[in-house]
Amino acid sequence: MDDKYKANEPFRFFTRMHLSELTGLRASTLSQLLALIKEIPGSSIYHHTHRFLLQYQYLSPEPPNDFAYWVSEALGEDELGEKLSSIDTIQYSTIRSLREKIIQVIELYLKDDPLAKLKFSRPGEEFHFIKSISFVLAANYTAGDLKEFAQVLDKITLDSIYYHIFEARLRLERSSNDFSNWIEHSLGDKELAQKISRLDPYSYTLEELRRNIIALIEKQAII
C-alpha cells in the first residue's frame, strides 16, 4: 500500500456501552410531552433520538426517534410523527440545538392544531423518559494506516462504530465524526474524510454504515 496512507498518529478505537436510567417521568398528552422535553436532561433527549440505531438493527430504515414513534402510535398524530421523524439530525451539532428543533416542531404543530392537545394515550402506553448513561473505554484495537483501519473496522463491535460516528459528534460535540477527523488530520486525505462525513449515518443500519465506510476506503486507497 502507498506510504501516503501511513498515519502520523495511530487511530485508537474506543467503545461505548450504555445503560438506561429511568427518570420516573411520563407523559400521556402532547402538552405533557412538550413540557418534559423542555426540562429533561440532555442525556434523555439523546437516548430517545438514538436508541433505535442500536436496538433495532433488523429494521431498515429504523424508526428514527421515540418521540415520532409515540406521537404516531400512541396519540394517532401521524402528521406530527412524520415531521419529527424527518428532522435532519445530522444537521445538529449539539443536543441543545436538537432539543430546540424538536420543541419548535411540536409548538408549531400545536399552534396549527390546538385540538391535538386533547388527545390522551391509553393507560400503559404513556411516554416514559429514559436517560442514556454512556461508559467509554478503549477497545484493544489501533490502526497505523488505512489498511489496518479498514481491517479493524471490519471486525470491531457496532458499539465502537456507533461511538466514533454518533456519540463523538453529537454528544461530545466534536466537529466531525472521529473517522473523518483522523483520516483528514493524520492521513492528510481530505477527500476521503469528506466522503465519509457526507454519509448520512441516520439513514443506514450500523452494519450498512460499516460496509459503506469500508467500501469508500477500499475505493479510495485501492487496498
Partner: peptide, 20 residues
C-alpha cells in the same frame, strides 16, 4: 452480563458520561 457489569460500575460513577 454487560448491563449488570455497567450497573455495578454505575454505583461508583454518578455522572452521565463515564470514562473508564
Amino acid at each position: 452480563l454487560k448491563d449488570y457489569i455497567l450497573l455495578f460500575l454505575s454505583l461508583y460513577h454518578p455522572e452521565d458520561i463515564v470514562y473508564l
